[in-house]
Write a protein that binds this DNA or RNA. Sequence first.
DNA 1: GTGGTCTAGACCACC
DNA 2: GTGGTCTAGACCACA
Lengths: 124, 124, 124, 124
Amino acid sequence: MEFNNNQAIYLQIAAYVCDQIQLQKWQADEKIPSVRELAVILEVNPNTVMRSYDHLQQQDIIYTRRGMGYFVNKDALQTITKTRKEEFLNEELPQVFRKMRLMEISGQEFLERFEKYKTNINLK
Amino acid sequence: MEFNNNQAIYLQIAAYVCDQIQLQKWQADEKIPSVRELAVILEVNPNTVMRSYDHLQQQDIIYTRRGMGYFVNKDALQTITKTRKEEFLNEELPQVFRKMRLMEISGQEFLERFEKYKTNINLK
Amino acid sequence: MEFNNNQAIYLQIAAYVCDQIQLQKWQADEKIPSVRELAVILEVNPNTVMRSYDHLQQQDIIYTRRGMGYFVNKDALQTITKTRKEEFLNEELPQVFRKMRLMEISGQEFLERFEKYKTNINLK
Amino acid sequence: MEFNNNQAIYLQIAAYVCDQIQLQKWQADEKIPSVRELAVILEVNPNTVMRSYDHLQQQDIIYTRRGMGYFVNKDALQTITKTRKEEFLNEELPQVFRKMRLMEISGQEFLERFEKYKTNINLK
DNA sequence: GTGGTCTAGACCACC
DNA sequence: GTGGTCTAGACCACA
């Protein structure tokens, strides 16, 4: 995985975990990769993965069972979807709108690029 | 000016300067506020403003004349518009598209919100 | 390290780092001294070293890894050698030539002094 | 005249004056341009030219006669030639030698470039 | 321990 | 007055 330098790695890992849950690749009460496993996969220090898991646990997205590992919380999917959607609509979109106006990008142009993006994704 | 805690102040100041240039409030070869002046206005340490100006100078957006101050570069407007647009289209938009798909927000819904935003802005 | 008063310390530190790389004492992807370490060694303020490292990072000579330190970029050696050579041939040499003509110093005399310099160095 | 940003403008102007004297374009006891004249020619603030003249006067290179202007000192040519030559041989040349070794530029290559330079100059 | 940002205050050279 | 550099000290986030 490639990390963006503008955001803490542990947050990017947490986001990655949320992605998996949101895409329903990791489902409720299912075990997720152990700290060490994920550390190897992502080529990161285990401490960093640990911190991500800590972070997610505090948000009730995952929970831990002694000696068994970390598991997806029952309502993780809902929680994630809800908070992410709120944040997106209230925080990010206005910024996007503002920039579109400044750079004179029309809603039409946006749509076209969106369609292009979707077909590109589906081909992969 | 209110600062956002997620981004370094000096970067926010740099962005602010770029905004002024993009809005053509500060034009080519025009003097911009001195380091000390802006520091007082924004209620920040002069060093912080200095750092912003340094940053902008390295991007050929402003230039300095000994003992006279900082001035807007001739093609600053172009440079800013170009780099900002590129960054928006190549970096930000794909992220937006990705999230829209994840959260099942349609292009239609986006457009509606955009129109709403535009009318809100115009009323102000 | 002794600093020359005609040039900013942070630039002299940057030059020192480049020297180390050019002499291959610090190799590609190798960690260089931490900001604090070097500050202690050179008896300067950490901020000053920081500024040097910042400067070198912008020139893609070193890079940083969060919480781990600064490392020599893969093609730092090439970059340094190339830019230094270019700068020397295009900027400095013409000045030297100019002065040699003004002061009537012949190419012959230059060569003699150069040979003398080289034997002196080798003796040390 | 184009100014180099690495050196104070008033020093560059002083060097320019010395050049003229060394090239014997301005001879002993001859009047040199007035502060205002030179300021116009070089597109600089008169204060800056003033400072250059001050500087040169302190080194006994020029002298002033009330209401008449500045004049080249009798032994200005000697003074300039001597101090410049000393500084060049003792300060600059060793630096040049050092860099030539680091960048593996041979005395032979130096000579070739020097000859090229001289023929270029003569054509102009 | 690492980098990174910010403040406060000082000093200098330049215009 | 302008920019530019440096120090000292603090605080934060990250690994």
